[in-house]
Structures are given as structure tokens and as C-alpha cells.
Design a protein around this nucleic acid. Structure first.
Lengths: 194, 194
DNA sequence: GTCTATATCGGGATAGAC
DNA sequence: GTCTATCCCGATATAGAC
């Protein structure tokens, strides 16, 4: 892997663990094993690194969603797969929260020009989830359901990060999977409740 | 109001809007209308200001929850009042997210010693909500329901901040209020004797 | 491509006059 | 209590050798 990609990978991880603003070039350089000066051969500014990190996240998210689509022919199983991210990534989420939600919020507070770029990762999940619900026979409500599942994951991630309560995560995942079954059984989404 | 309190108020607002770490003494001093030097008469370090801000938030949260308790004898109405925070504070949440969730996460990423202190605000809401559900006749599930309502507010706040979608907030609040009605209706008769 | 050395700026924090 | 002046450090970023 080239130096540029190694920088992006290290920055990706550090921006997640420490936040974008608090992460210094020195820290990234140390993680990669290069000098601070070398940095500027590959990137002009720190914001350029951020954009590269966001691009990398967009690409890996697209890849993951495509894999999930290949992995199961059943849209219900795919949604379940998404819901269970909070279990698979439990340790990281307890320590650092959701990488998508926390970055978008940090950039919002910084009034950073790349905020919209970062929201694109959320948009990928939203669109993908909406498509699953459409395949399951929902029409206009598909986007609403997608947002509900997204909101679930964000709520669980934030509280998991605050309280470090693993049981809470398991319980809420079970509950949402149950809710999903009910919603599919009734197929009248307007009066569905979480 | 004394200078110390004015510093805390300004810092409270700025830590919310910009985040703790990115907010400089210069910015706070300008907001208060004092010099940077004067700062250190009232606080020893920036972390001391953070702790004072958290104390202030704890106090105002306790006050708010007490007012809600006085304002309505019906625990159901009180929970509803909490749920509708995301509507009342819509504009701020769209711009900066939830003050509680975003601060706790920032401090988690910074591995900051005051992280647990900040989580205390979450704990106040959690306990208060749990008490409402207990009054409504729930026993062991009260804390679970409290966490669910908290998670709802965090999920909605994060997505509202990311997508700036006001309709989404209204819709989800309506839905949770509906869910609340259903949960209350489904109580076992033995529990509902209040 | 990668390095060392350095410029420049803004951060938190201190000293001491008033 | 509040100010000005200043220190010190670490941040991003640049220059130029190798």
C-alpha cells in the first residue's frame, strides 16, 4: 500500500477515535511512520486529508452495502444485518460512538465546509435501507422506515457510548428485530410503533 | 450577574455551539466582554471552566425536571414533555445536535477526565424518566423504557442535525407519543393500580 | 518521495501594574 | 477584580537538502 493510502487509513482511524480537530499531523505521522514534512507531498492541507478520509469511508460503505446485498437475497435479512452493526462494532462504539454520527456533528459544530460531504455516508445508508423496504413492498413509507432504523442505530450508539451498557444494546437490537417482524406482518406501516 | 457566572454562561453556550476543545479563551472572553487575563482570577484552567459548565447544566436540568414535575400531575404528560424537547429546541438541534450527547461523545474521544461528570446529565434524565414510568405502574421495565425514550431523542437529534429535516422530527415525535399510549394500554391490570 | 529545519500563528497559562 | 504584556508550547504549513 502506498504512503498516501497509509496516511488516509491512519487518519481515518484517528479522526474516529480522537475527533478530526484534536488529531494532529504529528499523531498521524507517528502512526504511519513518516515525518511531518513528508505529509505535504501527498496533501496540501489538513482539510484535504479529511476529504480523502470521507471519500474512503464512502467507498468502503458502498462496498459493505454491496456485499450485504450479495450476501442475502432477503431484504429483511439485509436490514437485520444493518441493525446488528451496533453489536458487531460494540467495543468501538462504546469507546468512540458511531463514526458517521460523531463526525457529521463535529463538522457541524466547526461549521466546516466538508460537513455535507460527510453527511453523504449517512445518505448511503439511508438510500440503501430505503431500497430494502421498497423491495419488501413499502412505497412512500420506505424512506420513513429507513430513517427510523437509522435513528435507532444513532440513539443506541450514543447511549452505549455514554453508559457503556452492553446489555442495553443487545436488548434494543432484539426489540427492533421484533418490531421489524411486526411491521412486515402487518404491512400497514402508518400505525407501526417502535 | 457576577463575572464568574457570565463566563460560565458564555462558555456553556460556546461549548455547545463549537465544541469544548475548539472553543478558545479568546472567544469566551470576547463574548463576556473581559480580557483573557481576567479569566484566571476566576478559574485556574480550561478544564475548571468545563466542570463549572457541567455543574451549571446539572443544576438547570434538575430545575427543569422539577418544573415539569410541578407542571403536571400526570407522569404520561411529563414524559411527553420530555419527548417534545426535540421540537422545542429544533433550531439549535439542527445546528449543533443535542448538548448532552455531543458533549459526552466529545469528552469520550478526548479521553477527558470530566467525561463521567458530563454523563451525569444523561443520568438525571434517565432517572427522572424511570421515575415517571414507575409512577405509571411499571416495575423492572421502567429503566428500560427510560433508556428507550432517551435513545429516541438521541437518534432524532443526530439525524435532525445531519439532514436538517424538520418534518422527520415532527413525525417521529408523533409516533413515539402514539407508542407511549400503546405501551400504557398494554400494561398488565395488576400493575396499573396507581 | 522523504527528510530536517524553520516560519508563523494561536492556544493555554503566568506576572505584575493598577 | 480587571487589565496589559509576556511566556511557552504545539499546531499547521513552508523551504530546501538529499
Amino acid at each position: 500500500m502506498g504512503t498516501r493510502d497509509r496516511i488516509v487509513d491512519a487518519a481515518n482511524r484517528l479522526f474516529y477515535e480522537q475527533g478530526f480537530e484534536p488529531t494532529s499531523f504529528a499523531t498521524i505521522a507517528e502512526a504511519v511512520g513518516i515525518s511531518r514534512g513528508n505529509f505535504y507531498y501527498h496533501f496540501k492541507t489538513k482539510d484535504d486529508i479529511l476529504d480523502a478520509v470521507i471519500e474512503s469511508r464512502l467507498a468502503s460503505t458502498r462496498e459493505m452495502l454491496a456485499e450485504w446485498a450479495d450476501g442475502s437475497a432477503d431484504p429483511r435479512e439485509r436490514v437485520r444485518r444493518f441493525v446488528e452493526i451496533v453489536i458487531v462494532n460494540r467495543a468501538d462504539i462504546e469507546n468512540y460512538g458511531c463514526p458517521v454520527g460523531t463526525l457529521t456533528n463535529e463538522l457541524a459544530k466547526l461549521d466546516h465546509p466538508s460537513r455535507a460531504h460527510a453527511v453523504g455516508v449517512f445518505a448511503l445508508f439511508r438510500t440503501w435501507l430505503r431500497e430494502q423496504f421498497e423491495e419488501l413492498g413499502f412505497d412512500a413509507e420506505s424512506d420513513e422506515l429507513a430513517m427510523r432504523v437509522l435513528a435507532f442505530s444513532q440513539g443506541v450508539a450514543t447511549l452505549s457510548n455514554a453508559f457503556h451498557d452492553g446489555d442495553f444494546v443487545d436488548r434494543e437490537v432484539d426489540r427492533v428485530n421484533l418490531w421489524l417482524t411486526e411491521v412486515l406482518a402487518s404491512r400497514t406501516p402508518a400505525d407501526s410503533a417502535v
